[in-house]
């Protein structure tokens, strides 16, 4: 029975990670109507950049700041120089270009870091355990969870309390309307796309030490993030939050209770949502 709190915490940690990724994905989708297939590739880059930076400097906190920043610029460049060029051709081309970027990033990662798993070693207090009401739990997982909460709170504050947040939310609702208000929507798009990439990269940095860093990590989490936004409703941040928690806990307890079925559970949930409410739990009906 003492397993249950552990698995519950595991689920929360994974949910936090999923939310960091899916929130950027769903925000970009809601605003630009672009599903960024390279989103998880940014996450993977975050993990690999962090690995190299750790090897070079040994400073985890540094990579926590530098890697998302790097990814912000990579993301902004992808939006500015690739995505925007094919925008006039419609969604199919937009999807294909992000698909191509994901493919190239994956192949580059294999080229530079090799096609095998890398271990990230953390020194210091983060690698220890802590006594939580008689339960020894790895500090690092708790750290991940608090990072996710912290970032989510910052994001909520920015979105709901600042002018730029209001513009972003208005663009999600109706980008044409915002355009007519004299706001530079393309610049906002570039910024949000870069921000989404940075968020994803941040998730990669904190996921690296816990999950394996390998070239398949992008595809793996991309599918989970997709399932999250299908269940939550595409474009809905609240939906992404709720669905991240559902998927995180489902995977964690699924592994405990039905180890053979744990993967199928997630898809069964997705199929059920598709049948009952095709637009997702918090999605708007078309």
């Amino acid at each position: 029975m003492s397993d249950i709190p552990v698995f519950f915490l595991h689920g929360l940690v994974y949910a936090g990670l999923l939310f960091l990724i899916s929130s950027g994905l769903t925000l970009v989708f809601g605003m630009m109507n672009v599903l960024n297939l390279a989103h998880a590739a940014f996450y993977m880059l975050g993990a690999y950049f962090s690995y190299s930076l750790l090897n070079a400097t040994g400073n985890f906190w540094l990579s926590l700041i530098v890697c998302p920043l790097l990814l912000f610029f990579i993301g902004a460049a992808v939006e500015r120089f690739l995505l925007r060029r094919v925008h006039v051709y419609g969604h199919v081309q937009e999807l294909l270009i992000t698909f191509g970027v994901a493919y190239i990033i994956t192949e580059s990662v294999k080229w530079i870091w090799g096609n095998y798993p890398l271990g990230v070693n953390l020194g210091g207090f983060l690698s220890g355990s802590v006594n939580l009401f008689g339960l020894f739990y790895p500090i690092y997982r708790l750290f991940m969870f608090f990072c996710a909460i912290l970032i989510s709170l910052i994001m909520a504050t920015v979105l709901y309390k600042t002018r730029i947040g209001i513009i972003v939310r208005a663009s999600v609702d109706d980008s044409e309307m915002v355009n007519t208000l004299g706001i530079n929507v393309p610049l906002v798009f570039t910024g949000v796309f870069g921000f989404g990439a940075a968020l994803s990269g941040f998730a990669g940095v904190i996921a690296g030490p816990l999950l394996t860093t390998y070239p398949g990590m992008a595809a793996e989490i991309l599918v989970d993030a997709f399932v999250v936004i299908v269940i939550g409703g595409m474009g809905s941040l609240v939906g992404a939050l709720v669905a991240s928690l559902m998927i995180g806990e489902l995977q964690s307890f699924g592994a405990l209770l039905f180890p053979k079925l744990s993967l199928a559970l997630m898809y069964m949930l997705m199929a059920a949502v598709l049948i009952i409410k095709p637009s997702g739990l918090f999605g708007e009906e078309q």
């Binding site: 989708f29 109507n33 672009v34 599903l35 297939l37 969604h91 999807l95 595809a219 991309l222 599918v223 997709f226 399932v227 936004i229 299908v230 595409m234 993967l263 199928a264 898809y267 997705m270 598709l274």
Partner: peptide, 18 residues
């Protein structure tokens, strides 16, 4: 459109997992 693309990828992942 976009949801179709996303769902086909998710289903492919399911088949792969199986």
């Amino acid at each position: 459109g976009v949801p179709f693309a996303l769902l086909t990828l998710a289903f492919n992942a399911l088949f792969y997992a199986i």
